[in-house]
Design a protein around this nucleic acid. Structure first.
Length: 565
RNA sequence: GCGCCCGUAGCUCAGCUGGAUAGAGCAACGGACUUCUAAUCCGUAGGUCCCAGGUUCGAGUCCUGGCGGGCGCGCCA
């Protein structure tokens, strides 16, 4: 758009009035009667100039040079707003731009190609993925898409905590089930994992490797069970994530931080900073010097590190690998760790806000207003897989994204299972499929249309003068700015909001043009020029819907199968 | 007790850098449609933006204090 140019012209006019260095803000008015772009600059200048805002606005309007800017008119309204209206050709031109850019429409260059890492999911391989992980998977993946679309080199990483006490307990739990499988009496470990999946794993181990670990030393048996269980669970998590449409560039193993000496090196580096002291036989870091609420133990009195230390070592690895921009997607139940990890990193000289965090609240599932738990296998919590099997990956992804991350998410099963336009996921899919259906009806293949076919020489878009069409074009033109805003605000839900609102407009436009009831508004009108213009708009709508759906990771089908009830 | 987050229509939630008359979906109500443009469409009503102060031309949005809810506050991860 030509917002920058408009800002320049406004600043020029202000300079003519002796005003410089005043911020000129442009916004999109909510009410279409207020034009396409509005500025409140006269209001913000009122106190500085000690003049009524409307008088200032009038003077600015009189000084503007709008020739050749694509602005058709300016008017002073309300308490002193300047409302600008784009020329018609400006509005139409977006259709051609969209058709030309196709699947690139909406991309921009904020990031200038710089690297950024999004770390997400990072579940311990001690059980199936739960809904919190699912929300993270959707958020992290879409955030990475948004960053990619705004010019960043986005890198997806998954951190496996495969080295701690949790894993030991998993091994012990499986070992117990394994022994019992062979009729051997065994005590279940305190704080062991109780889910049915532990029994499954033990039985699979028995099947795969027989009873060879029954008489082995307990340590060996635990180790064998741990290795087997971690492998099985990792495979299962990877499969679940793949079904969910999420891939990672790298899986980073916590255990590697021990084997390659990174943890020891981190201890040594922290010691050198002078922020380390010993007390009660443990090694502490003065994280309070960097804003934490209390100092933290790095190495326990038994000589083993707390989780805090590998976390710092891990983030030093991220930095060393060139990721000076990192976003960690985590459940807000981990927010207590943010300050201390940053404190440890600050002690080592990393910048104050490194890394950035996107924290999200938990997910609960409701049916008919009552909370439900689908927890057949896990022993307590609903797994991602169970939910995906119940309503489909597209619906789960979209529902996980449609609320802002910092708000608690109520997953409404009734709404999710609804396959009508009332379900926002289907509403958007239908809108897309409907555009494709129009093309099929016109004898064109929606999968193989070129921009030249849709926007041929002599295309007259000025024929699109119906208010619905004007409104729709304006909406499509906002998509690139929306993508930028969503990426900058780390707010994937804005894309859902855009999709839902836009799809509503599209469906309403489509229904209004029902050929049997309202042939005047049908895309496939009798008049060839009008028909071509409307087909171009149809194509542009299709591009934007598909691009938006791609961003959130939802399929954009060219046709919807009719459901047999 | 301390820290972070949330509080907007009956329900679930949007609301851009503070901007003009606070929006959407569901539910409710009223019409239309009987269809290969789909699993309908159009419209109406619905509000103490949790409360009280403050900042200013202007506050749902920013600040302070309360109230209500979630989460966290370990030599657990």
């Amino acid at each position: 758009m030509n917002r920058g140019a408009l800002r320049d012209i406004l600043e020029q006019a202000l300079a003519g009035m002796g005003v410089t260095g005043h911020e000129v803000r442009l916004e999109r008015p909510r009410d279409p009667d207020h034009g396409d772009i509005a500025s409140s600059v006269a209001l913000t200048l009122a106190s500085r100039l000690r003049r009524p805002p409307r008088a200032i606005a009038d003077e600015i309007a009189g000084r503007l040079e709008l020739d050749g800017t694509g602005i058709a008119s300016v008017e002073v309204a309300g308490p002193g707003f300047l409302n600008f209206r784009l020329s018609a050709s400006r509005v139409f031109s977006v259709v051609v731009e969209i058709l030309r850019r196709g699947e690139l429409y909406g991309r921009s260059g904020d990031g200038q190609g710089r690297s950024i890492m999004v770390e997400f999911v990072s579940a311990n391989p001690t059980g199936p993925l739960h809904l919190g992980h699912g929300r993270q998977a959707a958020l992290g993946d879409t955030l990475a898409n948004l960053l990619d679309w705004t010019g960043w080199a986005a890198y997806r990483e998954y951190y496996y905590n495969d080295a701690g006490r949790q894993i030991e307990r998993l091994g012990e739990s499986v070992a117990c089930r394994y022994l019992r499988h062979f009729g051997v009496q065994a005590d279940f470990p305190d704080d062991g994992y109780h889910g049915a999946y532990v029994v499954e794993i033990a039985e699979r181990l028995a099947q795969a490797e027989g009873d060879r670990w029954v008489d082995a030393e307990p340590e060996e048996r635990h180790a064998a069970c741990r290795r087997f269980a971690v492998r099985v669970l990792r495979e299962e998590q990877d499969r679940d994530l793949a079904h969910f449409g999420v891939r990672f560039d790298r899986y980073f193993l916590e255990s590697s931080l021990y084997t390659d000496g990174a943890v020891d090196a981190t201890i040594a580096a922290l010691r050198e900073t002078g922020h380390v002291y010993d007390r009660d036989g443990a090694m502490w870091l003065t994280t309070t010097a960097f804003g934490d609420q209390k100092d933290r133990v790095m190495v326990k009195s038994d000589g083993s590190p707390t989780y805090f230390l590998p976390d710092v070592a891990y983030h030093m690895s991220k930095w060393r690998r060139g990721f000076h921009e990192v976003i960690n997607v985590q459940g807000s139940d981990h927010h207590g760790t943010v300050d201390r990890v940053r404190a440890g990193l600050q002690a080592l000289g990393r910048p104050r806000g490194y890394p950035e965090y996107l924290l999200h609240q938990m997910v609960t599932v409701e049916r008919s207003g009552v909370e439900v738990k689908l927890s057949k296998r896990s022993g307590g919590y609903t797994t991602l897989r169970e939910l995906v099997e119940a309503v489909g990956a597209d619906v789960v992804r979209y529902f996980f994204l449609m609320r802002k991350p910092e708000a608690h998410l109520v997953f409404d099963l009734d709404a999710a299972l609804d396959h009508s336009d009332r379900n926002p996921v289907y509403k958007s899919k239908y809108a897309h499929a409907r555009m494709c259906s129009i093309f099929r009806k016109a004898g064109m293949d929606p999968d193989s249309m070129t921009p030249d076919q849709l926007a041929p020489e002599g295309l007259d878009l000025s024929l699109l003068e119906h208010p619905r069409e004007r409104e729709l074009m304006g909406r499509l033109g906002e998509f690139p700015e929306l993508v930028r805003r969503a990426a900058r605000a780390r707010a994937p839900h804005l894309v859902c909001e855009y999709l839902e609102h836009t799809s509503g407009m599209v469906n309403s436009w489509y229904h209004a043009g029902n050929p049997t009831r309202n042939p005047d508004l049908a895309v496939l009108a009798g008049d060839p020029a009008l028909r071509a213009a409307r087909l171009a708009l149809t194509g542009a709508v299709r591009v934007v819907l598909r691009n938006a759906l791609t961003l959130v990771g939802v399929q954009a089908p060219t046709r919807m199968a009719r459901r047999v009830s």
